[in-house]
Simulated scan of single mutants.
Amino acid sequence: MKSFSLILGLLFMTSVSAQEIQMSETASLEQIYGEVQEAQELLPMNELGIEFGYALYETTVTAGEKNPVLALENVRDYASVYVDGRLQGWITEEKKTIALQMSAGEHTLQLYAENIGRITYGPEILDNSKGLFGSITLSGTEIENWKMIPLAVRECSVGELTFTPQANGGIPCFYKGLFTVETPAETYLDVSGWGMGEVWVNGHYAGSYWEQNAQQSIQLPADILQKGTNSLIVFELKSNGKRIMRLSDKAIFN
């Protein structure tokens, strides 16, 4: 009997660790947009009614030269940068400038910001503004006329999102894939190679990930898994072309 149980356990571990999850559908972020606010200057998240989470800062810019430099005064705590729907990179409080790969002329600039925590440490500990605020320039010229949109990522009911066959065009969105489980048991979701985001399994929030963290897996308790088909939904802030996740029988570390 012991041998039979051991063989069964090994079979489960093998099937889990070998299983790839193809993220074959996407859902647009427009479905979770909050109230759009407009202003000449960037507004911090607390002025957008956001205590934690995500916001989209969007505007139209006119570049006077090829590959201009974007510079921000305050980035709290992280933002991915897109031009015309193409990922350019990311900015943080330690890295507040980025050279944009774009031609001279008019372009759409989108900054998807995340407030990682409520308290700002260091010299600004008494200023707990989050998001993007203060001066923002493109090759030294101030950028104005912003649309700012709260993104209800963690607050949304992922089961009510409308998914379609993958055609998100490379911008941040929700991804969906299916996987099978023979016997529900604790396992891990390998998120290595992805950027930054959130994970739900069968409608249950499972956790968040960031490529700079040491641990590159999310623990999936047995009680959120079900025998047969399971659904995996992922919100990805840095849409970097990844379309596959994997299950693992052990935690993954950098």
Rank of each mutant, 00 (worst) to 15 (best):
F4I: 15
G9V: 10
G9R: 07
L11E: 07
F12P: 01
M13L: 11
T14N: 05
S15E: 08
Q19F: 05
S24T: 15
A27F: 02
Q31H: 10
Q31V: 10
I32C: 05
Y33L: 00
E35T: 04
V36F: 14
Q37I: 15
L42C: 10
M45H: 09
M45W: 04
N46F: 14
N46L: 12
L48Q: 05
L48C: 04
E51T: 09
F52C: 01
A55I: 11
L56D: 02
L56S: 10
V61F: 11
A63C: 05
A63P: 05
A63L: 03
K66W: 03
A71R: 11
A71V: 11
E73K: 11
V75R: 04
R76D: 15
D77Q: 12
Y78M: 09
S80C: 05
V83M: 08
V83F: 07
G85I: 03
G85H: 00
G85Q: 00
R86H: 03
G89W: 05
E94R: 05
K96F: 13
A99S: 07
A99I: 07
Q101I: 06
Q101Y: 07
M102Y: 02
S103A: 12
S103Q: 10
G105V: 04
T108P: 01
Q110V: 00
I116C: 07
I116A: 10
G117P: 00
R118A: 11
Y121A: 03
G122V: 15
G122A: 13
N128L: 01
N128S: 01
N128I: 02
K130Y: 06
K130I: 06
L132N: 12
F133S: 03
S135D: 12
G140Q: 10
N145G: 07
K147V: 09
K147N: 14
P150I: 12
C156I: 14
C156S: 15
C156D: 13
E160N: 14
T162G: 05
Q166M: 13
A167F: 12
N168F: 12
N168K: 04
G169D: 11
G169A: 14
I171P: 05
P172R: 04
C173M: 02
L178G: 09
F179Q: 04
V181Y: 03
E182F: 15
T183Y: 12
T183E: 01
P184L: 01
E186W: 03
E186C: 02
Y188I: 06
L189F: 09
D190V: 06
S192I: 09
S192V: 09
W194H: 05
G195D: 08
G197S: 06
E198L: 06
V201H: 01
N202S: 01
Y205T: 15
G207A: 03
Y209P: 04
E211N: 02
Q212G: 13
Q212Y: 14
S217G: 10
L220I: 14
L220R: 05
P221S: 08
A222T: 07
K227Y: 08
G228R: 06
G228I: 03
T229W: 07
S231T: 10
S231Y: 01
L232T: 12
L232S: 13
L232I: 15
K238S: 11
K242C: 10
K250Q: 13
A251D: 01
I252T: 00
F253E: 00
